[in-house]
Amino acid sequence: MTDDLSPRSPHTGDDDPGESGAPNTQEKDGDHAIARTGRTRHTRKVTLRDVAEAAGVAPSTVSGTFSRPGRVSSATAQRILTIANDLGYRIDNVAPFRTEESLSALIGIVVADLSNPVFADYTRSAQHECLTQGLGLLVIDSEENMLIERDAIRLAHRHVDGLILASSRLSDTGIRKLAETKPLIALNRSIRGIRSAVADASDGLRQAVDYLALCGHRTITYLSGPESSWQEGMRWRALSAICSSTGLRLRRIPSASPTFGGAYRCGDPFLSSPTTAVIAYNDMLAIGFIAALHASGISVPAQVSVVGIDDIQFSSLVTPALTTIWLPRRQVAAKAVEELSARLHHLHEGNLRPVILPSRFIRRASTGSAPQTIVHQ
């Protein structure tokens, strides 16, 4: 299936073809010389920073003059508009900077599952940062379904100025197509050619494995997440490399879904070949798995140590309190809004390197020393 998210739009061409057959001349447009040869004009594009420097103000003030004029004094706004006109600055020189009449001041965030506390945190943090930036936020819950995500984005596309995709289930190709039509930031997914902000679990996983090894554990079971999740692939790859370098054995059990209910289905395959330690794709999976172990008469952490990933609020409230890997969810969501706002207002361009924020291991009551023998039901 092809993720065709590009809206059908009419062809747009050169609105200023010039005068056919005109002789070579030099025109003056503000402070920039323009060479005209036949139908072709050559000039260095005037940027928002050029206007800001000439006006002696910050780029954000120039941006606000065009996008949110109510926040800039009338005298300052008039001076900036005059200088922009003299320099030949045009908003449509740099798509997708839109005029005040067409700017919605609304961005969209697409989350995989709004019932998951992780995505609720992403949404809340993004909304707070949007309010700081003077933007509204449209929330789309894809329900872990690529078709729902694709169709919802298509419907919302013309209403938003940009998009944040949080753990998107779309293909890389589909996301690149979407990025051709709308400014976009990928959250917790690195895609070549797409700006992204990523909470990296690698540091926390390294600390967790080192701690489990110190406690005498020699084999770890990993309860995996959705196959379509980029983070799932990265966590498995990191965990495999870490266990290999520390000499620990690693096995993998797939989960039907990264939820409390999905964890119960992992119980039987785990008990058929148990290990003394388990690391789950996320906290909800870990909490559900502990409940499944308790239902089977297995004690945590006396017989099995369990580690989650995310450090959601519930992880410190369950019994036993869940050992986990803290991820900077709120920070990464706020950073994504900040980056998208900067792109919309052209405060920086051309930097596609991902923003990487590190994780850390938090030890609580669900982990401890390895038992002398592996428990069997």
Rank of each mutant, 00 (worst) to 15 (best):
V139R: 04
L5T: 05
T37V: 13
G368Q: 12
T76R: 08
L170H: 01
Q78P: 07
W230A: 14
S228D: 14
S224M: 04
M234A: 11
I194L: 03
E19F: 15
I83S: 09
T82P: 03
T2L: 14
R330Y: 07
P274V: 06
T221S: 10
F119Q: 02
V110I: 03
L178I: 03
A186D: 00
Q372K: 14
A95I: 07
P69Y: 06
S9W: 14
P328V: 00
L184S: 08
L81G: 12
N282T: 02
G18N: 07
L248Q: 06
P358N: 10
G134M: 05
S224Y: 00
L187Q: 07
S202P: 08
R158N: 15
A333R: 04
D141T: 02
G261E: 15
A256Q: 13
I148E: 08
S63H: 03
R235W: 00
D92F: 12
R218G: 11
Q26L: 10
E100V: 09
G225K: 01
N85A: 05
R36M: 06
D310N: 11
A263P: 07
I153Q: 00
A292S: 06
L357A: 13
E100L: 15
R150T: 05
Q372P: 01
G64Q: 10
F270K: 02
A179R: 01
Q127A: 13
G204Q: 06
E338I: 08
F260Q: 11
D113A: 03
S257E: 08
K182S: 03
S228T: 14
T123G: 03
T12G: 11
S196T: 02
T76Q: 07
C243G: 09
L87N: 01
I374E: 11
L214F: 12
T367M: 11
R206C: 00
I80R: 05
I220V: 14
A238S: 11
S67K: 05
E129P: 01
V72G: 10
P10D: 03
R237D: 06
R252S: 14
T219R: 15
L155F: 06
T276V: 11
G18T: 08
G174K: 01
G368H: 12
R192V: 15
L178M: 06
I80F: 08
H42Y: 15
S341F: 13
D92W: 03
L87T: 03
S60K: 10
V111I: 04
I109G: 05
R195F: 04
D113H: 04
D50Y: 00
R251H: 10
T132S: 13
T12H: 13
V94R: 15
Q127S: 13
D113I: 02
